[in-house]
């Protein structure tokens, strides 16, 4: 009985948070709703004996990744963050819902088609053993340095790339913009704006005056 209540309550938290993320107009609200979902997922981890992962989920996701989001939102200013716009990825809203429903339906059908959706071999060699002797973090650690040692070492490259990339992109640069709209003669500029796909358009690209302002702003 208890586990049903835990499941239902945490599922409700997860789904409310998820819908909140995509429905909230203010990105700060989205980030807070994301915390809610992450917390609900952590509860479900605990319900499934993944205690260590539940802790990591709260510490890394809620404690680091969401904070990073909030940092950037605050760095940009909430009003600016709110108006950020790269265009929608699909042309129409119904298309998006259709895609989502399609994904959901296909996953559910495939999962529930048979009586038993989990068909994999039960492991013997690296089984989860409950009890105090064999805590789950010890097993995870053991696996990280045996079966998954290569993947573990390779994440070093990944993290280096993230650091180098972030430093490179967030650097302040001086100099004049070389965007198509400022660099090219007037006629070519018009032609190019017409050709630029809607998705890539931002308010800045619309007028050259904005562009000039952007340059003066960027050179500070």
């Amino acid at each position: 009985m208890v586990d049903i209540i835990v499941f239902v309550v945490s599922a409700a938290i997860i789904l409310t948070g998820a819908i909140g993320v995509i429905a909230a107009r203010n990105p700060v609200h989205s980030a807070l709703m994301l915390v809610m979902t992450l917390f609900g997922v952590a509860v479900q981890f605990v319900a499934q004996e993944a205690h260590f992962l539940a802790a990591v989920q709260v510490i890394v996701y809620a404690g680091a990744i969401v904070i990073l989001f909030l940092f950037v939102i605050m760095l940009l200013g909430v009003d600016k963050a709110e108006e950020l716009d790269v265009g929608r990825l699909t042309a129409q809203r119904p298309m998006a819902f259709l895609a989502g429903a399609g994904v959901l339906a296909s996953v559910l059908v495939s999962l529930l088609a048979g009586d038993e959706s989990i068909t994999g071999a039960r492991e013997v060699g690296r089984a989860i053993i409950g009890g105090e002797d064999e805590a789950d973090f010890r097993q995870i650690g053991r696996l990280l340095f045996t079966d998954y040692v290569l993947a573990f070492e390779l994440t070093a490259i990944l993290l280096t790339i993230a650091v180098v990339g972030a430093v490179m992109l967030a650097r302040r640069v001086r100099g004049e913009a070389v965007d198509a709209d400022t660099y090219l003669p007037e006629q070519a500029r018009r032609r190019r704006i017409r050709e630029t796909p809607v998705l890539l358009r931002t308010p800045v690209v619309e007028t050259s005056d904005d562009m000039a302002e952007a340059n003066s702003g960027g050179g500070e």
Partner: peptide, 20 residues
């Protein structure tokens, strides 16, 4: 991830970062 950064490396070109 490295290619995302490379695509957006031209900081004086908005098109580059939008592509990224």
């Amino acid at each position: 991830i490295a290619v995302y950064v490379l695509a957006g490396m031209h900081l004086l070109r908005l098109a580059s970062q939008e592509a990224a």
